[in-house]
């Protein structure tokens, strides 16, 4: 069962093609990362899912309901954190949460959320115009999750959060996911995705590039080895394996070898050489993301 399913979802603003034929399926109960650079079409897709804007063509189904014709009903079970979070500055945090929470049945979850995000009653009594960016973001998360939604759509959720609160936020996401809530998280912060997401989609210029499990995507990474030898050696064999080679410095004789799928062969050959140092970085999703963005990986 899909929490979100889109079929050829397209949105044009005049001549600007903000979203082109998006086909996306988000399984219920997963934490789904929606990755893309600024202006890639992430927010447009989210606004289409929520029925805030109407598609030029195609359709979106959220929790089994059509986003255009059943927008109000589907939003009953959705919590939404906007990317460009704007609030009524004259209202207090308490007032805003009361106003936005007044559309749903009351749950005890709000108190827990405030505690998890370290938002005290005194903080909530203050006018929003006195809030820092991080406090506004926390308030945004509280209003989005206070009614224990079945689907949480979070647009750039960790923006403005300090590292300590970010950690609490990730714990919170894992907790709500553990309770069965589907989390659809749009971001361009790749570490956020690596922390909490099960699956990820990458979007560029309004077009979906790939959808895959985070682990599987990570396996598509390029292994980068920085190798230092006791003395220079003939390294042409590296190119024969299909890996790339860069001579970094001499002395000492340092080379950078990058390979996607020939790591075993490279390591075996390196074992025959006088290796005095080797650095291998933890595989980063960022590398995969950048490769997709730079068109180095063909669309599946």
């Amino acid at each position: 069962m899909y929490a979100i399913s889109t079929d050829s979802l397209t949105k044009h603003y005049g001549r600007v093609r903000a979203l082109r034929g998006l086909k996306l399926e988000v399984v219920q109960g997963t934490v789904f990362g929606f990755l893309g650079a600024n202006g890639a079409g992430k927010t447009t897709a989210i606004r289409l899912l929520l029925g805030l804007i109407k598609p030029t063509s195609g359709s979106a189904t959220v929790l089994g309901r059509d986003s255009v014709t059943e927008g109000a009903d589907l939003r009953r079970e959705v919590g939404y954190l906007p990317g460009e979070l704007a609030m009524y500055p004259w209202a207090s945090g308490q007032e805003l949460i009361g106003l936005l929470g007044g559309f749903y049945p009351e749950t005890p979850w709000r108190r827990e959320l405030c505690d998890a995000l370290e938002m005290s009653a005194a903080d909530l009594r203050r006018p929003i115009r006195e809030y820092s960016t991080g406090m506004k973001q926390k308030l945004g998360l509280i209003q989005a999750l206070q009614h224990a939604p079945r689907l949480a759509i979070l647009d750039e959720p960790s923006r403005g959060l300090d590292p300590v609160i970010q950690r609490s936020f990730f714990d919170l996401i894992r907790r709500i996911s553990g309770r069965g809530t589907t989390v659809f998280m749009s971001t361009h912060v790749l570490s956020d995705v690596e922390h909490v997401c099960d699956r990820v989609a990458i979007i560029r210029a309004g077009e979906l590039l790939v959808t895959d499990d985070v682990d599987s995507l990570r396996r598509r990474k390029v292994h980068r080895l920085e190798v230092t030898l006791a003395q220079p050696a003939d390294m042409s064999w590296v190119l024969e394996t299909g890996a790339s080679l860069t001579e970094l410095s001499y002395p000492p004789a340092t080379y950078v070898i990058e390979t996607a799928d020939r790591l075993g062969a490279v390591l075996r050959r390196l074992g025959e050489l006088p290796v005095v140092g080797m650095v291998s970085e933890r595989p980063r999703l960022e590398d995969v993301f950048i490769r997709y963005y730079e068109g180095q990986v063909a669309k599946p």
């Binding site: 109000a72 939003r75 936005l100 559309f103």
Partner: peptide, 14 residues
Amino acid sequence: GDGTADLLFSRPVT
């Protein structure tokens, strides 16, 4: 214009 529509109009109300 102020961006508050995203908060208000994303509620379960027409």
